[in-house]
């Protein structure tokens, strides 16, 4: 055995990304916020809280008290319970609509970026046309077209958010396609689908991951807005946006009805934004 590689293999490094993320305070704070809401939403069925749809005509618009810590709404439903069940709708709307946006946007972006030419021209012009319409207006238009329901609202938000992912993925795919390792895949003789799935896709993902946490935040706001307009979650099922919608009629008599969903949306969106910022910093190889 002559000619053996002489230097030892480097020790397996602890994931640099995780190490940087752990030391990023605001990211950890954001992650904790998100985690609390996710746990609350998941635990909703087993928590000792009243039925969110149970009305009580003897307890209409009660201010926060021991029996109803967050107060009650205009038909006597417990707001704390509706907040917790509403977290499910909001978080699900955020996650599912971003999943739809990624499922639509990433493949189109990869095709546009990798093949270029006409494929790119067609995809990019359509994307720009969609980007010209403000995100929320587009989501409202689509949701109105599809019909009011939480599922349709998520589809509408997903489609409205897709152009951002198409653009991001396209740019990233152009960079990755120029890498030597993609040329090495050609030299090996790999087929185009294999190159796209094994070489391009995994290497465009990190920025998409960052963008998706940031987009979840805007999707949650969008779902709240659609529900506020009556295009999202339909009564009596609770959602933060729908709760705000009814609360606006009682701003002077029962302001707590608006406080809680407002605070919850604020905190979740803040959590996802901090998480996304932290992820971006952690995944950025330039700063250490």
């Amino acid at each position: 055995m002559s000619n053996l590689a002489s230097d030892p293999v480097l020790p397996r490094p602890q994931s640099r990304v995780w190490r940087k993320f752990r030391h990023h305070r605001s990211a950890m704070f954001g992650g904790a916020l998100v985690l609390i809401f996710v746990l609350l939403a998941l635990a909703a069925p087993i928590l000792p809280i009243p039925d969110p749809a149970a009305t009580d005509w003897g307890a209409i618009r009660l201010a926060p008290s021991a029996a109803h810590p967050f107060g009650t709404d205009e038909i006597g439903r417990d707001i704390l319970s509706r907040m917790i069940w509403g977290a499910r709708a909001s978080l699900m709307a955020g996650v599912v609509s971003v999943a739809i946006a990624i499922a639509v946007g990433v493949p189109l972006g990869i095709l546009a970026g990798y093949f270029g030419g006409w494929t790119d021209a067609v995809i990019s012009r359509c994307t720009e046309a969609l980007l010209a319409i403000p995100f929320l207006i587009l989501a409202i238009a689509l949701a109105a077209f599809l019909g009011p329901s939480l599922t349709n609202a998520m589809i509408a938000i997903g489609i409205a958010a897709a152009p951002v992912f198409i653009r991001l993925t396209r740019g990233q795919a152009i960079n990755v396609a120029a890498e030597d390792y993609v040329e090495s895949a050609h030299a090996i003789g790999l087929s185009t689908p294999t190159i796209l799935s094994r070489y391009i896709f995994p290497n465009v993902l990190p920025p998409v991951l960052v963008q998706s946490t940031l987009t979840i935040a805007s999707a949650i706001i969008a779902e709240a807005s659609l529900s506020f307009l009556g295009l999202g979650q339909q009564p009596p099922a609770p959602s933060w946006g729908a709760m705000l919608n009814t609360a606006k009629n009682f701003m002077t008599q029962a302001p707590w009805m608006a406080w809680w969903p407002g605070i919850a949306i604020f905190l979740v969106v803040l959590g996802f934004n901090l998480l996304g910022d932290g992820l971006r910093d952690a995944l950025d190889p330039r700063e250490d």
Binding site: E179, D180, Y181, E183, S184, A185, A187, I188, R198, Y199, N203
Partner: peptide, 13 residues
Amino acid sequence: QFVFQDPFSSLNP
């Protein structure tokens, strides 16, 4: 077959 110049960029990470 081909051997690339830069061993840092020619292997899919």
